[in-house]
Computed example of a mutant assay.
Amino acid sequence: MATLLFYNEPAFLNREVHKTLKFKASVDYSFTEDVNSVPLTGIEFFEASRDMPVLFSKDDQGNFFPLALLSLMDAGHKHLGEAGSWSDSYIPAFIRRYPFALTDEGTVCFDQNASQFEGEEGEALFSDDGENTETLNNIIQFLNNYDQQHKNTLDYCKELKELDLLSPFNLQILLEKDKPLRLEGLFVIDEKKLNSIPEDKVKGWFDSGWLAWTYAHLHSLGALNRLVKRQKETL
């Protein structure tokens, strides 16, 4: 399971303990206000690339994972509008799945402190006889789809690492006079190395969709200009 960023009090969803729990969908994404990037799955690269750079980071074990860079700020971003609404840009699934998530064992968990569970209004997650409601089944389907895409993305990243296709992406941007902003610890796919991978790999990547993901990632680097413009407007 991807890290439980945003979840302040995660708990397993239990049909006995939470049989009266009501869920009220919300478009308030203010819980993201302190982050400047979030994990991304490969299938999202296409839509995200129009609005934000798709880059790669590396965890403590040396494994790579993709992320959507929301801003060039040390913390926070400028995609939030009034009442925590999201501006006219792509909302990563990592954000949209909140306040629910799946454990590695496939158990549904949720953030008990989330505003979506406050009050008596909302949709029931369990029927009177303890069965899943349509609302909960739809949530579980979304979580399962996300989990499968997350695993597929990790396989993609493992192959990038095995083929040594990722190179450090260090960028210096001058937002204000004498105040350069440096991006460090990020990685991009090296196009020269990409052009030299074996032909059988290219076919496999085409069939799996990984080749399209790769070019969507490279296309997304142009969205850095959008982030620079957005940040300069707030200075």
Rank of each mutant, 00 (worst) to 15 (best):
I197P: 01
L80K: 10
P39F: 08
F117Q: 08
Y29E: 03
E33V: 08
K229D: 13
N225L: 02
G222D: 06
S220K: 02
A11L: 11
D147P: 01
G119T: 05
E47F: 10
E162D: 15
A75H: 13
E233G: 03
G119A: 06
E199K: 04
K151A: 12
D155K: 15
K229Y: 10
G122Q: 06
G209F: 12
N14V: 00
L40G: 00
E159L: 14
Q116T: 10
F23Q: 09
D200W: 07
K193T: 03
I189A: 01
K192I: 10
H219S: 06
M73H: 11
L69G: 00
R50G: 07
E184M: 11
D190N: 15
H217A: 12
L21H: 09
Y29D: 01
V108G: 02
F206S: 13
R226W: 01
F126M: 05
K58I: 08
L165A: 07
L70D: 06
S127K: 11
T234M: 07
K24R: 15
H219P: 00
H18I: 04
A223M: 02
F117R: 10
L175H: 07
V27E: 14
K192D: 12
D88T: 09
D147L: 06
L70N: 07
E134L: 12
H150A: 12
M1A: 12
F206K: 15
L186H: 14
P39E: 08
E9Q: 11
E121G: 10
F45M: 14
E176K: 12
T133V: 06
I173T: 03
N170Q: 13
Y90S: 06
E118R: 13
T234H: 13
G222W: 00
E191M: 12
V228Q: 02
L218F: 05
S30M: 02
N8P: 01
S115Q: 12
Q112A: 15
W210Q: 10
K177I: 09
F126A: 01
Q61E: 14
H217T: 08
F126Q: 04
S115A: 15
